[in-house]
Nucleic acid binder design. Structure first.
Lengths: 137, 137
DNA sequence: TTCACTGCAAATCATTTGCAAGGCC
DNA sequence: GGCCTTGCAAATGATTTGCAGTGAA
């Protein structure tokens, strides 16, 4: 995923593609690790030395608002972000804290149930456990 | 749900039932609103004037550790707690922030998929949207 | 020129930690 | 007595806010 592709993606969501915003989106697209604000900030500041954490926060909140990214509440410590808004679940390793994608699950898991009391817009499916890497240590 | 029932429930999970712990568990059992630490603290301090928020935190963390309650990560602002550890989903109203239970969903939604890379222990199914009360306002 | 964007510093808020006092076995 | 529990105060750490400077249309 190139800088230009991230740029175009932002435009599709009516987000003015500043250098900082495009860099954050490019990072999200290339690192499907559901990074925290801190991880994004630390990764990008060498390339954009003036970057501030406030801008990373502003940018991600804007992405959420415009629907260009989703916020994951799987981790109680940090908010995590994902530029992939397609149907997939997440696995959180309670030992190392890493979040992994889980694709190829049954589509019915992502169906939005109809409920007379609520209007349901989205679903988050989160699995918890231990990853192989942590188990072998 | 009485104080004595909460007391017995704690014993089943090998948790020494102090006055504070039993009161927190009784509150969780009687208020299926997935309260935050603050809500629990504010509700109980009139009855237990010496209660500290630290104790509420300690108590809830102990419940989680012993499996007597579950932690909900549905809300990115506060951690929420639920003494009902049976299979049910949660609905989070993005307008008012309240969390509601959703029972009677298909049991297959709660099945733990087998995955070669992870050992999956639990699942959280969270729906997001607007509740009727917020929509009518 | 205007207005959106950026980024520093300070503020806020949830949660954790250190530690001393109190209570139960 | 010794250990577990409690609760205050301080520390920590993520996120937000205030505000002034910058830069693009």
């Amino acid at each position: 995923m190139t800088y230009m592709q991230a740029h175009r993606y932002l435009m599709q969501y009516s987000i003015r593609p500043s250098v900082q915003r495009t860099a954050v989106m490019e990072y999200l697209m290339n690192h499907k690790t559901h990074p925290t604000v801190d991880e994004i900030y630390l990764a990008l500041s060498p390339g954009i030395p003036t970057l501030s954490k406030t801008t990373v926060y502003n940018t991600l909140n804007l992405f959420i608002e415009k629907g260009a990214a989703q916020m994951l509440t799987i981790d109680e410590k940090n908010t995590r972000y994902d530029a992939d808004i397609s149907k997939h679940a997440h696995f959180y390793c309670t030992s190392c804290g890493k979040v992994h994608d889980m694709f190829n699950l049954k589509p019915e898991l992502f169906e939005l149930p109809s409920n007379p009391q609520f209007t349901i817009d989205s679903v988050q499916l989160s699995y918890y456990g231990t990853c192989n890497n942590c188990k072998s240590n």
